[in-house]
Computed example of a mutant assay.
Amino acid sequence: MKISPHCLVSLFSIILLSGFASSLHISLDAFVSHPATSRALLRAKKPCKEDFASKDYTIITSRCKGPKYQAKACCSAFKDFACPYAEIISDETTLCAADMFCYIQIYGRYPLGIFANMCKEGKEGLDCTNVKATSTSSRG
C-alpha cells in the first residue's frame, strides 16, 4: 500500500505506535512517541498489508465528538475500531499502527494525543478481551 502525501505529513504530527503486548491488549507503550534517535525509528519499516485508507472510521467519528470529548465514548469507539486489528498493528516491523492513527487523525480531525491521554486501563494497556469483532468493512 502506498501512503498518501497528506498521510505522511500527518504521520509526523501524531503519536506513533511502538507495538502491542498481545492481540488481546493494546499496550501502554503503543501510545508513547519515541525520540528520533531511537533505533526502532531508524530501521526501515515494511508497508502495511491492511489498507487503512479505505476503512470506515464512522465507528469512531460518530461516537467521539468534540469540543468536549467524553473519555468513555471515545475510548470505547477507539477500542471497537482498533481491537480487531491488534494483531497486525502489533507487528513493529510494519507501518500498520502509524497508518491507522494517521487515518483516524485525518478522518476525525482529533486533537493530537486524544486517545493516548484519555484511554488508559490497566498496567497492560487497553484490554480487547471483551471487544466484539465488528465488521471492519471498507468505506464506500
Rank of each mutant, 00 (worst) to 15 (best):
M1G: 10
M1H: 09
S4C: 14
P5I: 13
H6A: 15
V9Q: 07
V9T: 09
V9Y: 04
S10P: 00
L11M: 11
L11T: 01
I15T: 03
L16F: 11
L16P: 03
L16C: 07
L17M: 11
L17S: 05
S18T: 15
S18P: 08
G19Q: 13
A21V: 09
S22N: 03
A30W: 11
F31R: 01
F31Q: 02
H34K: 15
A36H: 09
S38G: 14
R39W: 12
A40S: 12
L41Y: 12
L41D: 10
L41S: 14
A44K: 12
A44W: 02
A44L: 12
K46D: 03
K46F: 03
P47G: 04
C48K: 00
K49Y: 08
K49E: 15
E50I: 15
D51C: 05
K55P: 02
D56S: 04
D56N: 05
Y57I: 10
Y57M: 10
T58L: 13
I59C: 08
I60C: 10
S62A: 14
S62V: 08
R63V: 07
K65T: 13
K65Y: 07
K68H: 11
Y69E: 01
A71K: 15
A71I: 13
K72A: 15
A73Y: 05
F78G: 15
K79R: 13
D80V: 12
A82R: 05
A86F: 07
A86T: 09
A86R: 06
I88D: 00
I89N: 00
D91A: 04
L95R: 02
A97E: 02
A98D: 11
D99T: 04
M100P: 01
F101P: 00
C102I: 02
C102R: 01
Y103W: 13
G108L: 06
G108P: 05
Y110Q: 00
Y110R: 01
P111T: 01
L112P: 00
A116H: 13
N117A: 14
M118R: 08
C119V: 08
C119N: 06
E121T: 08
L126H: 11
L126S: 06
L126A: 13
L126V: 05
D127A: 11
N130K: 10
N130Q: 10
V131P: 05
A133K: 14
A133T: 10
A133H: 06
T134C: 06
S135V: 15
S135P: 14
S137C: 07
S138N: 13
R139H: 12
G140L: 07
